[in-house]
């Protein structure tokens, strides 16, 4: 099977098939295409800035290692994010139950603007903390819905649940997070 120079025009499923057929460049394209989504997902869900790079790499390695189990019914990105979510769950365990690393100087914006950026940084940290403390399904449904714009049917396929259950998880997550904002 030939591999087109314009791999950017191929769908995720076509790239996955090309990778299985031995085309390394298909892996390059898939990683390039989805890296930022994985990073946003992991960071939003409680990964530290210093953990995000390694976890993202691991998520891709794990995904390519079990590409045969991606049935193509869920979008590749949603499936990939659930793998990242699984790795983050293990990371939480490694931290002996702490779902958020202590407020890290490196994760706060430059202190040159203490009024604006610092406050924004703290608000961001507070929201991440709230998301990290959600039960796993609530956390992942919420982020898939809000950041990826995935609908409940799509989320249900990725998380192996039903659209109705996904909707309930989303509303529970929203309720808990709103409480933290009050």
């Amino acid at each position: 099977m030939g591999f087109p120079l314009e791999s950017g025009s191929l769908s995720d499923a076509e790239l996955a098939a090309a990778y299985r057929a031995g085309h390394e460049r298909a892996a390059t394209e898939l990683v390039t295409r989805h890296t930022r989504a994985v990073v946003r997902f992991l960071y939003s869900a409680g990964a530290g800035e210093d953990e995000v790079d390694d976890l993202t790499q691991e998520a891709f390695i794990k995904a390519f290692g079990k590409l045969d189990s991606w049935r193509g019914d869920a979008a590749f990105r949603s499936w990939l994010l659930t793998i990242a979510g699984n790795l983050l769950k293990d990371q939480f365990r490694k931290r002996k139950g702490r779902r958020m690393v202590a407020l890290d100087e490196r994760e706060l914006p430059d202190r040159a603007d203490p009024h604006g950026e610092l406050a924004a940084g703290e608000a961001e940290q507070q929201l991440r903390e709230g998301i990290a403390l959600l039960p796993r399904l609530q956390r992942e449904v919420f982020l898939l819905r809000v950041q990826q714009g995935a609908d409940y049917a799509e989320i249900a396929r990725a998380l192996d649940t039903t659209p109705g259950a996904a909707r309930v998880h989303y509303h529970h997550a929203v309720k808990r997070l709103k409480e933290r904002l009050r």
Partner: peptide, 28 residues
């Protein structure tokens, strides 16, 4: 809440180089 969550992580994601990530993953 939804607006803030929608852009959460954008700063960190923008700082990551997807090409460099792809090179590391493919090498592994």
């Amino acid at each position: 809440l939804v607006q803030r969550a929608g852009v959460l992580g954008d700063r960190v994601a923008a700082a990551v180089d997807p090409d460099a990530m792809a090179a590391k993953v493919v090498e592994r």
